[in-house]
Nucleic acid binder design. Structure first.
Lengths: 369, 369
DNA sequence: TTGTAAGCGTTATCAG
DNA sequence: CTGATAACGCTTACAA
């Protein structure tokens, strides 16, 4: 059986991918003619072209195989051939799995459908992989981590990309000099606050992450502004009813949640509603509140953010009232934007803002009078 | 400030990456001497080499930039330069998010630490992206989907890779002709069954996915064999106590779970324990059982598989007894294996099997007498 | 120790 | 319409 296969094989050794020269030899034409024929250059006799294309097919010629040579040749004439590779930076620990996954899924889906392969790297990696400086990547998509946080790759990348046409799209958080896809967190927080105010709540605890070394955190500042605006628009004073729970560190809050809530309630006994920084905290909050003898939404209303993580009730239904952030759409928009930048040689910065939406479920209820 | 930057710039236009010729011109040596110096070739005077390296640094010469040219040049001599790109196929819907994420995280972590970038593709993509046939990918890692299922990319890839040295590592399910990283599901299922038998259970329902068009599903067959072996070793007859619940379709089971369980119990009223095909079904099963008036583990014991998805109790603690499959380690091992294949030019197939481990939590209890 | 030659596979430019 | 030429940036083989 092996022998048969070998006999059936083309005369070219299977080791080596077929080249234009191979085709030219077979057809008795010059290499250039082959090159032209395969690129549908008009100035080659249709008959010759047909014969060439046939032979190419016979030999299993695959233009993609010699993409690198093509790029090299065209560089002489200043022609940039796109490579069909995007790169993203996603946290390797995927701590908030659904959050990043949604973004990632959107990016992957759209990149793929546009013919681009997607490289993934962990933003905490200590040094950029060779491929990033090689010029093989057509563009980058990343979460626009605020300056001092984890934008290691972005910071490290920028200098190596200097002078090279290599667009970077940031998602969710704006970064100077990059095209961006943002979400309207201001309006989301506004809607959530308005919802609570309309339910009669007047004293709301707003989780407000602020890590000292990081400076202001764009998203959370936007949201805080939205909350305050709602207070004002409804005729209330945010300084009297909206309490910011400043968090100096986001992750290990699991253990400290009960303590944080207890102290917040001690300082502001009137609190009847809580705005969380993301859905992941909801189950922690539910636990902590239960320990304080409070049940949701009877005694206290809770609103999440992102709509990325469910808070399942006994029947497995998600009962978390939250602000939906269209994460997958953000990913799709970013990839689409990048594809446009890359294929249309467009170099102007672009900005898109996607709407958020309040999703009312079961963790908010009218204020008990 | 811009002006200053421009004045400080090197004489080479920043548009163009520095080349060896640029360095040679500056140093008054030939291009080839530069090539040698930068590759630490011994046969170049140390003094000259030093000067060359200095100039290279000044000009910001980055060898990675011209990686493609290097590959092209070396091909003449039959030398294969590795490209430091791996590719994986991961389901884009990430239906069982944690499961695939764990695998992915392992692959990504190890690939990155070995200096390889990771390309991700959705296995359902209709046609392979250009990069896959281009020879830019050094090797592939994928779940070894059984032949008839979603191995679209694998099937479509193999012919294009014919004759090319491009190793493929499959995870979890063996595929002919590929190196593999497997898990000992036989032992895992054995341990789970033994655990239940020791607790006094004699009538166990074993979910046994079997999709007609797919033929036997390796993992589930392994597990079933493990279950049966345990029955035999403990002196029981699997044909009398181990009931297979054949599933002809895995995904939309959510709605059919209550029905499936009801019918299984009708057929085999003695059932006191259930072996699930994966953790994701645990919450569905809990619901369905609750609806039948049965509580876990009082009335019925339940064992999951994978330890990828928690079954949280009221306090958020995972109470699912399950078989831990070291998914992240599988990913790491696969990437490590691939790196070895690629860097050591090794072409012999390799196989690794990682152990599984029964994790006893709160969903299994002694049989009520 | 250094330089010269030739070529990897392709393409734009110019000549036939 | 077709072909020869030179180049993209690099490397091995061989000569000086």
């Amino acid at each position: 059986m092996q022998e048969m296969d070998e006999r059936n094989a083309q005369t070219t050794t299977p080791e080596r991918a077929a080249t234009m020269q191979d085709i030219a030899d077979r057809c008795g034409v010059s290499l250039i003619t082959v090159s032209r024929a395969l690129r549908d250059d008009a100035r080659v006799r249709p008959e010759t072209a047909g014969r060439i294309r046939e032979t190419a097919a016979e030999l299993g010629y695959d233009p993609a195989c010699h993409h690198a040579a093509r790029r090299l040749a065209l560089r002489k004439h200043g022609i940039h051939v796109i490579n069909h590779i995007f790169a993203t930076f996603m946290p390797g620990d995927f701590a908030r799995a659904n959050y990043f996954l949604s973004l990632f899924r959107g990016v992957l889906e759209t990149a793929t459908s546009r013919g681009f392969a997607l490289l993934t790297a962990d933003p905490t990696m200590t040094q950029p992989l060779p491929i990033y400086t090689r010029g093989d990547v057509d563009g980058f998509i990343t979460i626009g981590w605020d300056t001092c946080q984890q934008n290691v790759p972005l910071a490290r990348l920028t200098p190596t990309l200097r002078g090279r046409r290599c667009p970077i799209i940031v998602m969710l958080i704006p970064v100077e000099g990059c095209s961006r896809v943002l979400t309207d967190d201001f309006s989301g927080a506004y809607a959530a606050t308005a919802h609570l105010l309309e339910l009669g709540h007047r004293h709301i605890l707003h989780f407000w992450p602020e890590i000292p070394e990081m400076g202001p955190i764009y998203l959370h500042d936007q949201r805080r502004a939205g909350c305050r605006q709602a207070y004002c628009d409804y005729g209330f004073n945010p300084d009297e009813g909206l309490y910011g729970l400043r968090m100096d560190n986001m992750l290990p809050l699991g253990e400290r949640m009960p303590d944080a809530l207890r102290r917040a309630r001690a300082a502001h006994p009137g609190i009847t509603a809580i705005l969380l920084p993301n859905d992941g905290y909801a189950s922690l909050a539910r636990e902590a509140l239960r320990a304080l003898g409070l049940s949701i939404p009877k005694d206290i209303s809770v609103v999440g953010f992102d709509d990325a993580e469910p808070l399942p009730d006994a029947a497995g239904q998600n009962l978390l009232t939250t602000v939906r952030v269209p994460l997958e759409a953000v990913g799709r928009a970013a990839a689409e934007m990048l594809a446009r930048h890359v294929t249309e040689q467009q170099s102007e910065l672009e900005a898109v803002m996607l709407p958020t939406e309040l999703v009312v479920r079961g963790t908010t209820a009218p204020l008990r009078s």
